[in-house]
């Protein structure tokens, strides 16, 4: 959501989106894990939600993940002409992040589908790729 009023000359806010590193051909999500309670997130806060200070250490997650849900958005949002496919992805042993889905294969993933991190797109949005051949069968809704 955007505050009312002109933002024409306002500076862009610092980029709040998750960060990634590339290791070989793989992209990994940079986040944090609490040494006390084990909670993971896409950030490294000074105090974990468990109450422990200074226990969240930086670590990397991925490159795989599982789709919690996805949608194809058909309305325009700034700089992103429709359609755009978005998904909540539970990164393997890591946090849940929002990512754009590369629709190269023209098929949107379903909950439970496996995806892999693919860094950021040209707008800086986290992006995941989906290989339909990896779709699990025998789960009812996913069956062809």
């Amino acid at each position: 959501m955007q505050r009312a009023g002109s933002t024409e000359n306002a500076p862009m806010p610092a980029d709040p989106r998750p960060e990634f590193v590339k290791e070989g051909e793989k992209y990994l999500l940079v986040g944090g894990r609490c040494r006390s309670c084990g909670l993971v997130s896409a950030y490294v806060p000074p105090i974990c939600s468990c109450g422990q200070a200074g226990q969240v250490q930086s670590c990397e997650f991925g490159p795989g993940g599982t789709v919690f849900s996805s949608t194809v958005l058909h309305i325009p949002v700034p700089e992103r002409p429709p359609p755009t496919c978005l998904a909540y992805v539970d990164v393997d042993d890591g946090p849940r992040i929002l990512a754009h889905v590369d629709l190269g294969l023209g098929v949107a993933p379903l909950p439970g589908d496996q995806v892999f991190l693919a860094g950021r797109n040209s707008l800086g949005d986290p992006i995941v790729k989906f290989d339909q051949k990896t779709r699990l069968v025998g789960t009812g809704v996913n069956d062809e």
């Binding site: 980029d15 949002v77 755009t84 949005d125």
Partner: peptide
């Protein structure tokens, strides 16, 4: 319009997409 200072808003995550998911 999504809020650009929000980690998801910065990705163009409009409310219909949240409910769509």
């Amino acid at each position: 319009s999504p809020i650009p200072s929000d980690p998801e808003g910065a990705q163009g995550f409009a409310m219909p997409a949240l409910y769509g998911m």
